[in-house]
Amino acid sequence: MVDFGFKLSKSSAIVLSETADPRFARLVALEPDVMRCMSCGSCAGSCTAASFTTLSLRRVILDLQRGQTADATGQIKHCMLCGKCTLVCPRGLNTRHIILSILQVYKEEE
Protein backbone atom coordinates (compact mmCIF):
# COMPACT_ATOMS: atom_id res chain seq x y z
CA MET A 1 0.00 0.00 0.00
CA VAL A 2 1.19 3.51 -0.77
CA ASP A 3 2.45 5.26 2.29
CA PHE A 4 0.83 8.69 2.53
CA GLY A 5 2.60 9.46 5.76
CA PHE A 6 -0.41 9.06 8.03
CA LYS A 7 -2.63 6.21 9.23
CA LEU A 8 -6.08 5.65 10.72
CA SER A 9 -6.12 4.88 14.40
CA LYS A 10 -8.60 2.32 15.81
CA SER A 11 -11.93 3.70 16.98
CA SER A 12 -11.99 4.32 20.69
CA ALA A 13 -15.81 4.02 20.93
CA ILE A 14 -17.05 1.24 23.22
CA VAL A 15 -19.40 -1.12 21.47
CA LEU A 16 -21.41 -2.52 24.36
CA SER A 17 -22.70 -5.48 22.42
CA GLU A 18 -19.13 -6.61 21.80
CA THR A 19 -17.65 -6.07 25.20
CA ALA A 20 -20.71 -7.15 27.16
CA ASP A 21 -20.37 -10.15 29.40
CA PRO A 22 -21.78 -13.17 27.55
CA ARG A 23 -23.02 -14.42 30.91
CA PHE A 24 -25.50 -11.58 30.98
CA ALA A 25 -26.89 -12.70 27.65
CA ARG A 26 -27.32 -16.18 29.12
CA LEU A 27 -29.08 -14.71 32.11
CA VAL A 28 -31.48 -12.84 29.82
CA ALA A 29 -32.11 -16.02 27.87
CA LEU A 30 -32.92 -17.90 31.07
CA GLU A 31 -35.14 -15.17 32.50
CA PRO A 32 -36.04 -12.33 30.11
CA ASP A 33 -37.74 -10.51 33.00
CA VAL A 34 -34.33 -9.21 34.09
CA MET A 35 -34.44 -6.73 31.19
CA ARG A 36 -37.73 -5.28 32.38
CA CYS A 37 -36.50 -4.10 35.76
CA MET A 38 -37.05 -0.37 36.21
CA SER A 39 -34.81 -0.07 39.27
CA CYS A 40 -37.60 1.12 41.50
CA GLY A 41 -36.09 -0.56 44.53
CA SER A 42 -39.30 -2.04 45.92
CA CYS A 43 -37.56 -5.40 46.11
CA ALA A 44 -34.74 -4.01 48.21
CA GLY A 45 -37.19 -2.17 50.43
CA SER A 46 -39.04 -5.32 51.41
CA CYS A 47 -36.17 -7.81 51.32
CA THR A 48 -35.97 -10.29 54.18
CA ALA A 49 -32.21 -10.67 53.95
CA ALA A 50 -31.79 -6.90 53.92
CA SER A 51 -32.60 -6.85 57.65
CA PHE A 52 -29.21 -8.47 58.16
CA THR A 53 -27.12 -7.62 55.07
CA THR A 54 -26.81 -4.99 52.35
CA LEU A 55 -28.57 -7.18 49.77
CA SER A 56 -30.50 -5.19 47.20
CA LEU A 57 -31.81 -6.97 44.15
CA ARG A 58 -32.18 -3.68 42.36
CA ARG A 59 -28.49 -3.03 42.81
CA VAL A 60 -27.54 -6.56 41.83
CA ILE A 61 -29.39 -6.22 38.53
CA LEU A 62 -27.80 -2.82 37.82
CA ASP A 63 -24.39 -4.24 38.74
CA LEU A 64 -24.74 -7.08 36.29
CA GLN A 65 -25.87 -4.80 33.49
CA ARG A 66 -22.76 -2.73 34.09
CA GLY A 67 -20.40 -5.67 34.38
CA GLN A 68 -19.70 -5.17 38.08
CA THR A 69 -20.11 -8.83 38.75
CA ALA A 70 -18.00 -9.09 41.91
CA ASP A 71 -20.30 -6.77 43.84
CA ALA A 72 -23.39 -8.53 42.49
CA THR A 73 -22.31 -12.06 43.32
CA GLY A 74 -21.09 -11.03 46.75
CA GLN A 75 -24.57 -9.74 47.53
CA ILE A 76 -26.89 -12.17 45.86
CA LYS A 77 -25.56 -15.12 47.82
CA HIS A 78 -27.28 -13.75 50.91
CA CYS A 79 -30.75 -14.17 49.42
CA MET A 80 -33.10 -16.57 51.21
CA LEU A 81 -35.37 -16.97 48.17
CA CYS A 82 -38.33 -16.02 50.36
CA GLY A 83 -40.17 -14.42 47.46
CA LYS A 84 -41.22 -11.16 49.07
CA CYS A 85 -39.59 -9.22 46.25
CA THR A 86 -41.75 -11.09 43.73
CA LEU A 87 -44.87 -10.05 45.60
CA VAL A 88 -43.97 -6.39 45.75
CA CYS A 89 -42.37 -5.85 42.36
CA PRO A 90 -44.61 -3.34 40.56
CA ARG A 91 -43.48 -4.72 37.20
CA GLY A 92 -44.55 -8.23 38.19
CA LEU A 93 -41.10 -9.64 37.52
CA ASN A 94 -40.29 -13.20 38.47
CA THR A 95 -37.52 -12.05 40.80
CA ARG A 96 -36.97 -15.46 42.37
CA HIS A 97 -36.20 -16.91 38.98
CA ILE A 98 -33.96 -13.96 38.18
CA ILE A 99 -32.04 -14.75 41.38
CA LEU A 100 -31.88 -18.50 40.75
CA SER A 101 -30.66 -17.84 37.22
CA ILE A 102 -27.96 -15.49 38.49
CA LEU A 103 -26.86 -18.16 40.95
CA GLN A 104 -26.67 -20.58 38.06
CA VAL A 105 -24.96 -18.44 35.42
CA TYR A 106 -22.36 -16.56 37.47
CA LYS A 107 -19.55 -17.80 39.67
CA GLU A 108 -18.44 -16.57 43.03
CA GLU A 109 -15.77 -13.87 42.81
CA GLU A 110 -13.56 -12.43 45.50
Binding site: I76, K77, H78, L81, L103, Q104, V105, K107
Partner: peptide, 15 residues
Protein backbone atom coordinates in the same frame (compact mmCIF):
# COMPACT_ATOMS: atom_id res chain seq x y z
CA UNK B 1 -29.07 -28.54 39.40
CA UNK B 2 -25.56 -27.13 39.52
CA UNK B 3 -25.10 -23.55 40.70
CA UNK B 4 -22.08 -21.33 40.27
CA UNK B 5 -22.82 -19.31 43.38
CA UNK B 6 -23.63 -20.95 46.70
CA UNK B 7 -25.83 -19.14 49.13
CA UNK B 8 -24.16 -18.24 52.37
CA UNK B 9 -26.01 -17.38 55.55
CA UNK B 10 -22.96 -16.94 57.74
CA UNK B 11 -24.32 -13.53 58.61
CA UNK B 12 -27.03 -15.12 60.73
CA UNK B 13 -24.39 -16.23 63.22
CA UNK B 14 -24.38 -12.80 64.80
CA UNK B 15 -28.16 -12.50 65.07
Amino acid sequence: RQYGIHQDYGYLGGV
